[in-house]
């Protein structure tokens, strides 16, 4: 609410020579990368929201034929959830300054994320083999586009993960990579939430 407070300031009043005005101090927790990541997550959220709105509008048109659900998606959801938990655990280990658990945590979460990506591709294959092609119905098109877009965001995260893990494995100080690991974990939690949203949408419609 300090934002609201500050836009009610009257800057034309004489405010003296002390530059340290209240309302300008920014706490340690707001590293610029954190702000940027939050904004970025908001942008990604808008992208998915727009797809979902389009999904609902397109669903109303008469040629929509709902797609069956692949059981594999439940397994994948579980994988992504485990991944998020490990990330959180790694983040805790970083806070305690533990070198080895951080290594294991990072490697494990990355491997499981790759397993998730593989699982999603298998779900695509399963659907394709069952005759639910991308272009045969708008419901299918949305299934492939939404899962694909989510997968691309996961891959983007993995790129950052690779850089962080590389640093961890090459013996960097835990302190030096604390921020990257925290940001990775936030991103993974966010993508888990997005996936749960998509999965719920695909399951219930």
């Amino acid at each position: 609410m300090s934002f609201l407070k500050s836009i009610f300031e009257k800057p034309w009043d004489y405010q003296g020579d002390d530059p340290n005005l209240s309302g300008q101090e920014i706490g340690e927790s707001l590293h610029p990368k954190r702000i940027a990541l939050r904004m970025f997550l908001a942008v990604i959220f808008v992208v998915f929201m727009l797809f979902i709105v389009a999904y609902f509008i397109r669903m109303e048109l008469e040629d929509w034929r709902p797609m069956p659900e692949s059981n594999l998606l439940w397994v994948n959801t579980g994988l992504l959830f485990i991944c998020s938990v490990i990330m959180q655990w790694t983040r805790g280990a970083v806070h305690k300054g533990l070198q080895n658990p951080v290594k294991y945590g990072m490697v494990a979460s990355g491997v499981i994320t790759l397993a998730f990506v593989y699982g999603q591709l298998s779900a695509w294959e399963e659907m394709n083999n069952a005759g639910y092609y991308l272009a045969s119905n708008p419901a299918n098109s949305f299934f492939y586009v939404l899962t694909g877009l989510h997968g691309l965001h996961i891959l983007g995260g993995l790129w950052v993960w690779t850089r962080a893990t590389f640093k961890v494995l090459s013996g960097a100080e835990v302190k030096a990579i604390r921020l990257s690991i925290e940001l990775c974990s936030v991103y993974w939690h966010f993508l888990l939430l997005v996936w749960l949203g998509i999965f719920a949408l695909l399951s219930y419609t």
Binding site: F3, S6, I7, E9, P19, Q24, L30, P32, A36, M39
Partner: peptide, 15 residues
């Protein structure tokens, strides 16, 4: 956005 929010100099309040 990040620069405006985080990199203002001494005394540069939003207003």
């Amino acid at each position: 956005v990040t620069t405006v929010l985080q990199a203002r100099t001494h005394g540069m309040t939003l207003m």
